[in-house]
Simulated scan of single mutants.
Amino acid sequence: MEEETSQAIAWISFPDLLPTFFVKEALFTLAYAVGNPLQLDMATINKTRPSCARVKVQLDLLVEKPQFVQMEIEDETTNATRSVKVKIQYDYIPSYCRKCKLQGHMEDEHRILHP
């Protein structure tokens, strides 16, 4: 009862992603590398901010967060594939203390362990 969940909701961004990939299915597939995708922001849906796409995800604070996701792009006319590395930017992600199992601080900031 004194423990908080290690699950949190956060926004992630894919900067410099081509606007042709601003479709829910493509963005959710990329977001699965981080956690469970929940929704797109309105600017992404309306394609009013072509510089980056944003997705709200449910993620586990105990799992390491990837900085990139690999995307394979296939040319339908030639069947040639190329690999593209897509950068992932994280908006605010809460800290999680593995010692007391509470959100809001890291283990190295724990008051009892480090008075």
Rank of each mutant, 00 (worst) to 15 (best):
C52H: 15
N46Y: 15
D41E: 14
L30A: 08
K85I: 04
L40V: 12
D91G: 13
Y90W: 08
D16I: 00
E64M: 01
A26R: 09
D60F: 01
F22I: 03
R54M: 12
E25C: 15
P115A: 11
K65R: 03
K99G: 01
D16H: 02
M42R: 14
K24A: 05
L40K: 08
T20H: 11
K85T: 08
A80I: 10
D91A: 14
F28Q: 09
E76A: 04
S6G: 04
A10P: 08
D41A: 15
D60K: 00
D75A: 06
F22R: 00
T44Q: 10
Q70K: 11
Q70F: 00
I12Y: 05
S51C: 11
K65D: 01
Y92I: 07
E25K: 14
R111H: 13
Q103E: 06
Y90T: 07
V69Q: 07
I112Y: 06
M42C: 12
K87H: 03
T77C: 01
Y90G: 09
S6N: 07
Q67E: 07
L113Y: 01
T20P: 01
F14S: 11
I88D: 10
W11F: 12
V57W: 14
V34C: 14
P50W: 15
D41V: 15
S83I: 13
P19S: 08
S51F: 15
A33T: 02
D91N: 14
L18M: 08
P15H: 05
L40E: 10
D41C: 15
P50N: 13
V86K: 03
L62D: 01
L113F: 03
T20F: 05
A10W: 09
S95M: 08
E76G: 05
M106I: 06
D108C: 05
D75P: 02
R82E: 03
T44K: 11
N79P: 00
A80F: 05
P94G: 04
S51M: 13
H110T: 02
S95A: 11
P50H: 15
M42G: 09
M1V: 13
A33Q: 06
V86Q: 04
M71T: 04
E109C: 07
R111Y: 12
Q89W: 12
A33R: 06
N46V: 15
A33N: 07
N36F: 07
L17V: 09
S51E: 15
S13V: 00
I45Y: 00
S13C: 05
Y32M: 12
